[in-house]
Every structure is written in C-alpha cells, then in structure tokens.
C-alpha cells in the first residue's frame, strides 16, 4: 500500500484520567464510562437496581478489605462501547 510520512506534530490530549462520563437515558438507565470505586459507592448509595454495582464493589472489597453496604434499585450499565 502507499505509505505516508509521519507528521512530527504531537497532539496533546486533555487529561481525562480523573473524569467519569455518566449519561442517564430517558428510560432511566444510567450509563457510566470510567467507573471508579467512588462512582460505584455513589451509585450504590442512591440504590441502583441490578447486580452490576454490587458485583464490582465486591471485587474492590476483595482487594482492599474495606467494607461497604451497597443497596440495590435505576438500572446501571457499566462502560460499554469502548474502543477495540
């Protein structure tokens, strides 16, 4: 195939490492991209429905030993149409 030359320009990305993207659909489903433990705990505290939050908080507890008390009821979706 035809090769092209690399541009020396370096594009700097905004640092998104500390930002989570939360979108709430009109049907009440919550979509989270970039799910930190703190986001999970907040979702548990407001009582999201389904197992997604509880299962992942359990993983965090298994690693750190910290306790938590997630409750369960709007449904949450964890990050989905991720790249690759």
């Amino acid at each position: 195939m035809t090769a092209r030359r690399v541009s020396r320009q370096q594009v700097r990305a905004d640092d998104e490492s500390t930002v989570s993207d939360i979108r709430i659909g009109t049907d009440g489903r919550v979509h989270v991209f970039g799910t930190s433990r703190e986001i999970l705990e907040a979702l548990a505290a407001i009582g999201v429905r389904g197992d997604a939050v509880r299962l992942r908080l359990n993983g965090a507890v298994a690693m750190t030993g910290d306790d938590h008390s997630p409750s369960s009821a709007p449904a949450t979706r964890t990050p989905d149409n991720q790249p690759s």
Partner: peptide
Amino acid sequence: GTEARVFRHRVEHGEEPQLVP
C-alpha cells in the same frame, strides 16, 4: 509510528467482576 501514546489511564471498576479493580 513506532511510539505509543496513552490518552488516559486509571483504575476502573466497570470491567468484568473477575478483573476489577
């Protein structure tokens, strides 16, 4: 090119339960 660039890195909990954090 030959270099790789990281546009974000963070500890996430939204992956499959057996992977998180």
